[in-house]
């Protein structure tokens, strides 16, 4: 904050007499501007976060808060031996590990395709983007019908090619992958748009120069396109990763976490334990752990980003 030369003499004059007053006034002015946001963030973000931490050390039952007791690390110890928790953790990890690369690469491939100068390409852009315009709840309901083994479209379409039938959401080994496929289908168009904007920012002359040097398409992709959108690529992968760990709507609507817990996720468990089973204490321990996982991912990402960009 450097005052402009015109202002400077003015300020120096007043400095001696009104410094403290001015400091106070500026403090309150700043607070007046930032205050509403700060208060809201405190009440609806910081306070609940601290409460979650606190509850995780109690046996708070939703209907009988008056009987809550401090139980130390009991809830956390229970986590370690809870097979359902370990399964949810594993499911969340599998989902994230597959969705992040799959969705990012699909989006990139789509973006490269629709970046071609072809007639009617705009239609394809819209087509790939269309699922984004719905909502996760809508597509989850829709795909529950499509995945129905007996009366679903998926099996009737695949039967044309002679594949299937599959059980999809009814099978514990297929349910999570069915959800993964649908999620990528829904989300890829969004990221395609971001990639597309990035691709269009790469100046044409770079490609022209490469063509003159005799580079083929593949070499152009590796040496010009990818470096040109590197930042976007990283950004998308990171954002998708955090979003993927929060998987909830799809299993909630499509499978209720089943069959046999094969689509239970961490967030689903936080919800189920807290609201269905009313076990606020244990649910809070799960929530705190979930926060730690997100925190670790973010910190590692940031560190990695800093290291690679240098």
């Amino acid at each position: 904050m450097e005052p402009s030369p015109i202002l400077r003499p003015n300020r120096n004059e007043k400095k001696v007499t009104a410094y403290s007053n001015k400091g106070v006034r500026q403090f309150w002015l700043g607070m007046g501007f930032a205050g509403p946001a700060v208060v809201l963030l405190f009440v609806f973000l910081i306070m609940p976060a601290l409460l979650a931490l606190y509850y995780s050390f109690t046996n708070y039952y939703l209907l009988t808060p008056q009987l809550s007791e401090f139980v130390g690390f009991e809830n956390y110890q229970r986590l370690a031996g809870d097979t359902l928790f370990l399964k949810s953790l594993k499911n969340t990890a599998i989902f994230t590990a597959i969705v992040v690369p799959l969705q990012t690469l699909t989006a990139l491939a789509l973006a490269l395709l629709v970046n071609q100068k072809l007639k009617g390409i705009k239609f394809f852009r819209v087509a790939f983007f269309a699922p984004v315009v719905t909502s996760m709840v809508i597509v989850s309901i829709l795909w529950t019908f499509i995945y129905n083994p007996d009366t679903g479209l998926a099996n009737s379409i695949l039967s044309i090619v002679g594949i299937g039938p599959y059980q999809y959401l009814m099978d514990k080994d297929q349910a999570l992958y069915s959800i993964i496929f649908m999620s990528v289908w829904q989300g890829a168009g969004y990221q395609m748009m971001i990639f597309l904007a990035g691709l269009q920012d790469i100046p044409d002359h770079q490609y022209e120069a490469a063509s003159i040097d005799g580079a083929n398409s593949w070499q152009k992709l590796i040496h010009i396109t990818i470096p040109g959108i590197r930042n976007i690529l990283v950004f998308i992968a990171l954002v998708t990763m955090i979003a993927a760990t929060k998987l909830f709507i799809q299993p909630f609507v499509m499978t209720q976490g089943g069959p046999l817990d094969s689509t239970k996720t961490l967030v689903y468990m936080v919800y189920e334990t807290g609201f269905k089973f009313r076990d606020v204490g244990y649910s809070s321990a799960l929530a705190v752990l979930f926060f730690m996982i997100v925190l670790v991912i973010s910190v590692v990402q940031r560190k990695w980003l800093r290291d690679t960009s240098q």
Binding site: A34, A37, V38, L41, V43, F44, L45, I46, M47, P48, A49, L51, A52, Y55, I242, T245, K246, F248, V267, V270, Y271, G274, F275, V280, S283, S284, A287, V288, F290, F291, V294, L295, S298
Partner: peptide, 24 residues
């Protein structure tokens, strides 16, 4: 300090404060 605190809050996933927020 205040701004740094605000930025740090970005990291808190909403899903982890669900229950206490409900109680508040």
């Amino acid at each position: 300090v205040l701004f740094a605190a605000v930025v740090a809050l970005i990291i808190i996933p909403f899903e982890s404060i669900l229950l206490p927020l409900y109680l508040i």
